[in-house]
Write a protein that binds this DNA or RNA. Sequence first.
DNA 1: ATGCTTATTAAACACCTGTCGGTTTAATCC
DNA 2: GGATTAAACCGACAGGTGTTTAATAAGCAT
Lengths: 203, 203
Amino acid sequence: MLLTPFPEERLDPRVKRTRALIENTFNHLLEEKGFSAITVQDITSHAEINRATFYAHYADKFALFESILRARFRAEMDRRTLRTCTYDSHNLNALMETVCDFVALSASNCKGNDAQFEAIVEAQVRQQVQAILEHWAGQIWPEDPSFNKDRSTAATWAIYGLAQQWSQIKPQQRQPSSQFTKRVLPMALALLHAEPQTISQVG
Amino acid sequence: MLLTPFPEERLDPRVKRTRALIENTFNHLLEEKGFSAITVQDITSHAEINRATFYAHYADKFALFESILRARFRAEMDRRTLRTCTYDSHNLNALMETVCDFVALSASNCKGNDAQFEAIVEAQVRQQVQAILEHWAGQIWPEDPSFNKDRSTAATWAIYGLAQQWSQIKPQQRQPSSQFTKRVLPMALALLHAEPQTISQVG
DNA sequence: ATGCTTATTAAACACCTGTCGGTTTAATCC
DNA sequence: GGATTAAACCGACAGGTGTTTAATAAGCAT
């Protein structure tokens, strides 16, 4: 299984309550003041939770945000693909659109263009995309796994970079993500299907 | 001029001294304990500088590190290319090798795989590479500047991603950067020379 | 219901951050 | 060389961090 959305462990209801409280408060504060302005103090006082309790669940506010992003992105991919773990051109298209929309949505929640914030979003999304593309590359090229890593890495970074660039254009001025994806998807495709020598050398 | 290596402003010798003291101490501490373990306290006490003086020169330790990285990378590119601002296949090769070696060297200074550290290196290097590739794309495709942005963005991210992936292989197990670059450079080339429609569609 | 376990709380801890007002010291300009 | 400008120092500040200890309370068995 590629993605394990819900471990669905039976958790102590206190733990469930506390985590939900923390995450909801965090999401609320994120829209209100942006990531860098949020302190653990903020979260715990608004959630009416002891500060030590926060640290019993998350190492710091970064770990909290990462966990939230991971869950959000997985849910979004599951919503947009039939079977995320099966490669076909429709799913690759869906992947890229998902990344575009996800990054754009995140950026809109980000007051003051916070570099920390963007780095965390990037790292999490890239990690998810890389896992999916490595899986897909294994289906396309069942042999020569070493170059599969290069293919999926190049495709992952190119896709994320393009999505991020697109997301930074003002919403009124940019074309919809579906159209943008259609325009640049050939690049990702070329990378995912690339062979070391067969790409034409251009001087 | 693409890169402005040395503004060579005439600086107050005190400023020069203080900045050199801070940067040298930082570099020393970086090798010793890694980025995340360094505090501004550390830097100023080892440099025998008042803490307030630090903040007169850099907003925080992140800004300091960014400034050091920027200077280092530019110096390295200038060392490895004849004219950085002119595109040819040799310079593209040199660019990729530079990124590989630069990231690998940085990573070796990174105790305990610090995510913050890596994010800063990535952001700085990507920014430099993007500027160079946009410039080069403008030379290759003097018309249709809008797709030039897509080309250079995709190439930048793919190059950085590949370099970063390579740099994380143990030095004994990976091939030298020159060989790795030779192997994956076609991918970067394809992106930089891509046209929206002409890349073959694969199902 | 009664114990056992585990989450949450409360209060304190040492430490770091970024900033400020006032002083001292070094560079620069005539 | 003496006046002027600006960098560097000093001490203090209000805040936040992450950790610890002991006490309390909630969940979960038998």
